[in-house]
Design a protein around this nucleic acid. Structure first.
Length: 313
DNA sequence: AAACAGGTGCTAA
DNA sequence: TTAGCACCTGTT
């Protein structure tokens, strides 16, 4: 398919993920920081649309617009600028999207299983229906969650976008790639501060340095046992238990991990630990024990649920 | 405009 | 082992 608009030439491809997807929930739940709400050009029927940047193989990135109609189905439509697609073909771009959106996850079954735990999770799944845990680029995920330390989602988004604009390459739609570790490692701290990353500049640089030096081999982590990979990630300054768990879940699709931030801590305390204040470690252990191999999805539903109705509301 | 939100590293008990 | 503090930016 082909779309002509006033100032750009877009190609479009339909993608079926084989199970429900809700783009708004998936792209705005805080697992990823590169997507913005937009209008899908020439397709007023696609009332939900987001513009972002995804990996398309060989370390290349491409700006895309993804859209869906008002219903939560398994179908999305993807548009991109062919001029920026490089060697990626129509078909390979569709495949890249299937991978990114974890088409291999049977989310229908996952939702049913987690619903079955109790009324808390049943309500949480209802609110998060169509959520998909993504499979993001390893480095972008690691860097993004280093930037998430003691920071809010709008702020993280702003910094990531600044980094791309300052140090990335054009990937279409006026967007820029997320800069590689060596690009970031080469920058002065004073320069990085311009992106508003604040005190996280040295953490970001340490992460970049360790990756460039091969001391943290992001590809090798793929085949490492989760606990070992976690320890390796935590050897980076600025990567503690929460950031490591986010990278394992969202960059390596280790669905058994249960990242525990203050919100999840509150949720676990309120719903499962008798309301008493608990350490993040206790909350995490309880989450992993309860939800086992589905802990990652459970965590995200819980996050959506607790943020919809915070304690003391 | 002062208070607040948010993980991690570091130092002190 | 853990408690308490500093770190930066943006919002209320």
């Amino acid at each position: 398919m082909h779309i002509e608009t006033a100032n750009r030439d877009l190609a479009a491809v339909d993608v079926d993920l084989g199970g429900p997807v809700n783009l708004a929930i998936t792209l705005e739940c805080g697992q990823v920081f590169r997507w913005r709400k937009t209008a899908f050009p020439g397709r007023p029927d696609l009332v939900v649309a987001y513009e972002g940047v995804i990996p398309v193989g060989d370390g290349r990135q491409l700006a895309v617009i993804v859209g869906q109609d008002a219903d939560v189905t398994s179908k999305i439509v993807v548009a991109y600028e062919p001029a920026h697609a490089g060697r990626a073909t129509h078909g390979s771009i569709a495949d890249s999207l299937k991978f990114y959106f974890s088409a291999q996850d049977d989310v229908q079954t996952i939702e049913e299983s987690i619903r079955g735990f109790d009324s808390v999770m049943s309500s949480a799944v209802e609110q998060g229906h169509g959520l998909r845990l993504l499979q993001q680029d390893h480095w972008e995920c690691l860097a993004s969650f280093v930037l998430s330390i003691n920071n809010s989602i709008p702020n993280i988004t702003r910094i990531v976008e600044n980094l791309a604009a300052c140090l990335g390459d054009p990937v279409g739609l006026g967007r820029f790639s997320f800069p590689s570790p060596d690009r970031i490692h080469g920058q002065e701290s004073a320069f990085l501060r311009q992106t508003k990353c604040g005190f996280r500049d040295r953490y970001l640089k340490d992460a970049a340095k360790r990756v460039v030096a091969g001391e943290v081999d992001l590809l090798a982590l793929e085949v490492m046992p989760t606990e070992e990979a976690r320890e390796r990630l935590m050897s980076i300054r600025g990567v503690g238990p929460k950031v490591a768990d986010c990278v394992l879940l969202l960059g390596y699709h280790r669905l058994e991990v249960f990242p525990t931030d203050v919100w999840i801590g509150r949720a676990m305390s309120r719903f499962y630990l008798g309301g008493r204040a608990v350490t993040p470690k206790i909350a995490r252990d309880e989450g992993m024990r309860r939800f086992g191999p589905l802990a990652g999805y459970a965590q995200e539903y819980l996050f959506i649920s607790i943020r919809n109705s915070p304690p003391g509301d």
